[in-house]
Design a protein around this nucleic acid. Structure first.
Lengths: 205, 205
DNA sequence: TGTACATCAGTGAACGCGCGTTCACTGATGTAC
DNA sequence: TGTACATCAGTGAACGCGCGTTCACTGATGTAC
């Protein structure tokens, strides 16, 4: 990563990565353009060759986050392919794994305050990710008798909300109160009980 | 609220309220000490007669939030007293109602980045609120056969996570993507399915 | 009731700081001939 | 291969700004006698 000379080579991406590091380390508030540029070994003014400004840089980080997120979800879904149920559970768990593994992206996406409607690209990326979860939910809902089948968008919204809540309250250290249960367990048992409530799992499972 | 003269009378609380207004309007980031003091009709320096600084003021807002929150939860719980089930559902719903009605407090508590461990008082207030939900969960769990009874703290954590996730993703406008379902419905159906999964509701309910 | 005085809540000017952003510039790169 | 030149990525100095915080101060309040 040593700076070569006058020209950086791949400053745009280097700035995004610096931003992600800083966001992860200090939260979305503690991040500044100047600092990101310094970390990339460059003058603050150089940022403006690649981004419109501070917000634009964060938005790019979030965009990349949504793309990775969609990827991760897709892969989790595919891995569980043989059983729609497994696919669904895996997709939910992937949420938690993503938050753990890409904390900078996660924060940029969900805690930085930038709106998903800031840009058509960003809206598309987020819609795409959500679509994958809904697809998993839809496939799963086919196992239910048609008259007891809830709309799959509702049912994926439940899983998404539960996952998000678990991450925010018990996985990220921000609110400070760790639960006595590991977030993974909390999520897994929660999803299990929920699916049983839908009639998709036996009462003894 | 007109300023009387040289002395304000109740500046401390006026500052907290100004802070809440600003936080609600602009998010935790957009809030500044100077602005809060201006809104309270007072010089920025006056703030230091009542608070140690910016963070301390936000912490006080969060503290008051936890107290109101605990109150609201307690009341919801009491109102559903005759049926433990009703009490539990009401307590969950109260979460959403709180976020809607006291957005400034809600943000100060959950989105401002101040840690609940900042102060013993703050930790106590938050523990107290959580305790109420756990109590509701415990009472409810007594309806289950002892061998199938999950720990009530786990089960209240599930409801809390679901509620929090619904609020963050679908009730607060920040991430920008409104669901097609009203958050109240999402939460109610979600809790319903979950409770059915626990065997606390008939399959047809 | 009236005066003296301690207490305390607010003033307002000043500070240093880091921020985001702009600007005219310059050094490096790559392409045309 | 060598030279001229356009393009473009980065510099560095400067800006105005609002912020949080400090300080010596002053005006109002309330209490003792």
């Amino acid at each position: 990563m040593a700076k070569r000379g006058y020209h950086h080579g791949n400053l745009r991406q280097a700035l995004v990565e610096a931003a992600l590091d800083l966001i992860e380390a200090r939260g979305p508030t503690g991040f500044s353009l100047s600092e990101a540029s310094k970390q990339a070994g460059v003058t603050p003014a150089a940022v403006y060759r690649h981004f419109e400004g501070r917000e634009d840089l964060i938005a790019e980080a979030a965009l990349q986050g949504y793309e990775i997120f969609a990827d991760v979800m897709q892969r989790a879904f595919d891995d569980g392919k043989p059983s729609a149920l497994a696919a669904f559970e895996a997709t939910g768990r992937a949420y938690l794994a993503f938050a753990r593994r890409y904390p900078g992206h996660y924060i940029a996406m969900f805690e930085s305050g930038i709106s998903v409607n800031r840009t058509p690209q960003l809206a598309a990326a987020s819609a795409h990710a959500r679509g994958i979860l809904e697809q998993a939910a839809y496939n799963l809902s086919l196992y239910l008798p048609a008259d007891k089948r809830p709309p799959s968008s509702m049912f994926s919204a439940h899983i998404l909300a539960l996952s998000h809540g678990v991450v925010e309250l018990y996985a990220r250290n921000s609110p400070g109160t760790a639960s006595q249960y590991p977030p993974e367990d909390l999520l897994e048992t929660g999803i299990g009980i929920y699916l049983r409530g839908l009639g998709l799992l036996d009462a003894d499972t």
